[in-house]
Design a protein around this nucleic acid. Structure first.
Length: 304
DNA sequence: TCACGTCAAGCAGAT
DNA sequence: ATCTGCTTGACGTGA
């Protein structure tokens, strides 16, 4: 499973391509919900997703995070449209493109999804939203190496108890969600060590985020952190995923860079060897930095 | 065409 | 108490 060439590393960016005209994350207000509006918007989002994936292949970008806005109001009660059947062919076509080109896919449900919440209705809605994410990846026909990355959630003044609540809720999830879920260390509450504890009790893989680790560290150096997080991924989970960003200069700790810092990136790659992973760049200018990263990896002597 | 108030959803930390 | 950030501002009304 280990790949020995840096050239095999897949690099990606999240959700939006700012160089392109189309927007694959279009949505609308709940007040203006209609079935026609939904169908029109989903069609637009799928078309644009396909265009972005084609752009990526042309530029050697083989990792992509699909927006949670792909299907607006997907898990909301207002949406009773059978979009799964309606767009079956489009999903299949894009899914085949993803598989034919060996593109790695992730999704990242947003902040409202809190599996360890103390409120039953928040948990219920969170699970519905996770089901939607799993549905999308299933409709594309992707295997369990396509992941849904989630933060652990709230602390509520008692982290140990809240960790145990996460484990319990995770264990009760449907297999179709469980096989795709991974947890990411965050910048305020759950450090890498916290995530590794949760892995120990649940088996959920840990996705390492370097910038969050800098801001909310549990003490491991980069190499140790990568070794530990990588070990939580099994064969069926595929190559581990890692989120990378550098700190924006003169801004609050943890603020994502506007554009890639080439030296920081080179250092990160050099220090990260020999650990193998696919790398998501959480950098504001998205595809522009991804292009620079691909360029650095293909040209820099140190990485060959 | 543009300004600007508001948007399904949670939580923590800053102000 | 209220605002801001989070992976990403952008929808939509009124002038």
């Amino acid at each position: 499973m280990q790949r020995f060439s840096i050239k095999a590393m897949k690099v990606g960016y999240p959700c939006i391509n700012r160089s392109m005209e189309c927007r694959g994350n279009k949505t609308f207000r709940l007040d203006s919900y209609s079935e026609d509006r939904l169908i029109e918007t989903v069609q637009n989002n799928l078309n644009c997703l396909e265009e972005m994936l084609k752009f990526n292949i042309e530029h050697d970008i083989y990792f992509f995070r699909i927006t949670s806005d792909l299907i607006p109001f997907a898990s909301h009660e207002v949406n009773d449209h059978d979009w799964q059947s309606h767009f079956r062919n489009e999903f299949q076509k894009i899914g085949n493109f993803i598989k034919d080109n060996h593109i790695r896919i992730s999704m990242h449900p947003d902040q409202f999804i809190v599996l360890n919440s103390k409120k039953e209705d928040v948990v219920k809605r969170s699970i519905e939203e996770l089901r939607y994410h799993a549905d999308v990846l299933d409709l594309f026909g992707l295997d369990s190496t396509a992941k849904i990355q989630l933060h652990v959630g709230g602390v509520y003044g008692d982290k140990d108890k809240s960790k145990r609540r996460f484990v319990k809720r995770f264990q009760r999830l449907d297999e179709k969600i469980k096989r795709r879920l991974v947890i990411e260390n965050d910048d305020t509450s759950y450090s890498l060590k916290d995530c590794l504890d949760i892995h120990h009790h649940s088996g959920v893989p840990v996705l390492f985020d370097n910038l969050h680790h800098r801001v909310n560290s549990s003490g491991e150096g980069l190499e140790k952190a990568l070794e530990k997080s990588n070990n939580t991924w099994s064969e069926k989970d595929g190559i581990p995923m890692v989120d990378y960003s550098s700190q924006e200069a003169n801004k609050k700790e943890g603020k994502h860079a506007e554009t890639i810092d080439k030296n920081d990136f080179r250092d990160f790659i050099e220090l990260s060897r020999p650990h193998d992973f696919d790398l998501m760049l959480e950098i504001k200018d998205k595809e522009k930095s991804a292009l620079k990263a691909v360029d650095i990896l293909s040209k820099d002597e140190r990485f060959h």
